[in-house]
């Protein structure tokens, strides 16, 4: 009996050790990012892992906007764009997923096939057309335009959510229908509350889009007015050949500052996961 216990203990240790090793590998570049951002040298350090001299000067500089770096302003811009995008995208994804998963109507299959076909086309190519579409509505150099680009086609990414909705027991919906619930109520009051994990996933991924995209943002915010930039283009431009030597550390510091709120968001979201586990257990 004691031996069994010892075995179990060592297997637990091994298990956690494995996770620790993996986590270590995963975090090396992130640690490097964090360390570099505290370097006192403004260019790139290629000879040592840790900076030679530590300093928080580049964080201070980030909050003293100059013509190149207007970080606080960029952060606000991106935050606003991300919030609106996230609401619209999540709504679109859930709406399409519900319609295709739970409801049955004649055009369902053709529409789903059409969505697959649209997803196959290299989206990068269509960028120029999207740009001129926005321009004709006078939406270039505006956040409304960017938000539309980020969330307009969100419905196409419905498949994961649909796969999830497919696992919601159909009997529940049928019972509700017999009780006289409208489709809208089934959607809002039965299916949505059961789908927290997938909602969390959708919210996270759509919230991230504006923080990560630099291709569309660069194209649409093309007036060169730096206080209108999103974090992504602002930081990306710091790596311009003529600037990298003076701004590389600031770029790292900016990267760290962007990651912190997103990480916090992820951590809050984790709680929902736990709730999802218990919810699933009750359901099962």
């Amino acid at each position: 009996m004691r031996k069994m216990k010892g075995n179990r203990l060592s297997s637990i240790v091994m298990h956690n050790l494995l996770i620790a090793v993996l986590a270590f590998i995963w975090l090396i570049p992130i640690v490097w990012l964090a360390c570099t951002s505290f370097s006192s040298y403004s260019g790139m350090n290629t000879s040592t892992f840790f900076p030679k001299e530590w300093s928080i000067i580049h964080y201070i500089k980030l909050f003293q906007p100059d013509t190149v770096a207007q970080f606080p302003q960029w952060f606000m811009n991106t935050f606003i764009i991300a919030c609106v995008t996230c609401v619209i995208s999540t709504a679109f994804v859930l709406m399409v997923a519900y319609a295709t998963s739970v409801m049955r109507f004649p055009m369902r299959r053709p529409l789903m096939n059409l969505a697959v076909i649209l997803n196959l086309f290299p989206g990068m190519l269509a960028m120029i057309a999207v740009y001129f579409t926005l321009k004709s509505f006078n939406l270039t150099n505006s956040y409304a335009g960017l938000i539309m680009v980020y969330s307009g086609s969100a419905g196409l990414g419905y498949l994961i959510a649909k796969g999830f909705f497919d696992t919601v027991p159909r009997a529940l919906c049928e019972a509700a229908r017999i009780d006289g619930c409208s489709e809208a109520r089934i959607f809002a009051q039965i299916v949505i509350p059961m789908s927290r994990p997938i909602i969390v996933y959708t919210v996270i991924s759509s919230f991230l889009v504006p923080w990560m995209d630099f291709v569309y943002a660069k194209m649409i915010l093309n007036a060169g007015i730096s206080e209108k930039y999103t974090v992504a283009i602002g930081l990306y431009k710091m790596l311009d050949k003529s600037l990298i030597n003076n701004y590389f550390t600031m770029f790292c510091a900016g990267g760290v500052l962007v990651s912190i709120p997103i990480s916090v968001l992820f951590m809050i979201m984790q709680k929902f996961y736990v709730e999802g586990i218990t919810g699933g257990a009750v359901k099962g």
Partner: peptide
């Protein structure tokens, strides 16, 4: 919100897809 609820659900997303994906691709 009943038997035609799918129309309510799909109108806006489809419109978005048409304007920001379908038309650019056609073009």
């Amino acid at each position: 919100i009943e038997e035609k609820f799918h129309i309510t659900l799909l109108t806006l997303p489809v419109l978005g897809i048409v304007v920001f994906t379908a038309i650019p691709i056609l073009l």
